Amino acid sequence: MDIEALSLSGVMRLKPARHGDARGWFSETWSARSLESAGITTTFVQDNVSYSAAVGTVRGLHYQAPPSAQAKLVMVLNGAIRDAVVDVRVGSPTYGRWLAVDLTAEGGEQLLVPEGYLHGFVTTQPDTRVLYKVSAPYDPAADGAVRWDDPDLGIDWGIDPATAVVSAKDAAAPAFRDWTSPFKIRAWSDA
């Protein structure tokens, strides 16, 4: 598995090897042993799958507040997405900065999103299925969101915001400037 550290602390792109023959291919998409050898010790406790029919479907920017904070390992089973993360760890030198990574079923890439980040994605192909492992069970009391198209964040989603397919919850999420992060840098092991 190729593992690449990205520009925000702890965020990594993973590229599992694919072994092909006349039948197609096989890939080990997650291995505790392989990740531990790369210093990734996150324990995942739940798998989630989302399906989005239309191109331009936005899900995010979501988080689970401590003590129910979640790290995520995101991969696309069918279709493609632009995955976006925002560092919201108060005290981090990259607080408020974002990055976006394109993930495709065809390419098999994955994105590791640590606790302390907002997370969301937009579909770039129809009939997209996304699988993501999480490190803590969903807790409705810890559920939160920040507006996906917040002008202060300025995330490049690669779509016209006027054409986005968005849930009522995500459309009503607060602006970044009106939101208080529950994540503190001293609570995490990295800076």
Rank of each mutant, 00 (worst) to 15 (best):
D178R: 12
N78L: 13
D83R: 01
I155R: 08
W157E: 03
S135R: 09
A71M: 05
P114Q: 06
R33K: 14
T57E: 06
D178E: 12
E106N: 10
A38P: 00
A53T: 06
L131Q: 13
P126W: 07
A175K: 12
Y63H: 15
A191Y: 12
G108H: 07
P140V: 05
S31F: 02
A71T: 05
L73K: 00
W30Y: 15
G96H: 05
D170A: 12
E28L: 15
T123A: 04
R18K: 15
D190N: 08
L103G: 01
V101A: 02
L77G: 12
S7W: 09
A187P: 01
R186V: 15
E106V: 11
N78M: 15
S68E: 11
T128V: 02
I40H: 00
F121T: 03
D170Y: 06
H19S: 11
L35K: 00
T128P: 00
T29G: 01
G116T: 04
T94K: 06
S27E: 00
W188D: 04
S52Q: 03
R177Y: 02
A172F: 10
T42D: 10
A38K: 13
V74S: 05
G20C: 14
R97C: 12
N78T: 14
W188I: 13
S27M: 07
V58T: 03
P66L: 11
V113C: 05
L35T: 04
V134Y: 03
G60M: 08
N78D: 11
L118G: 08
G144E: 07
A142V: 08
I3E: 01
A168H: 08
I155Q: 10
A17S: 13
Y51I: 11
A71Y: 04
E115I: 11
T128G: 00
V90Q: 13
V85A: 06
A69D: 15
Q46H: 13
D190G: 06
T124K: 12
G20Q: 10
A71E: 03
T94H: 10
A136L: 09
H62Q: 13
W157G: 00
D178Y: 02
Q64N: 04
T123R: 01
P182S: 06
D152I: 11
K184G: 08
A65F: 09
S135H: 04
P126L: 07
V49C: 08
L153A: 07
A145N: 01
S92M: 00
E109F: 05
V88E: 01
A191W: 14
E28N: 11
A171I: 12
V130D: 03
V85L: 08
V55Y: 10
S167W: 14
Y95H: 09
S167T: 14
E28F: 03
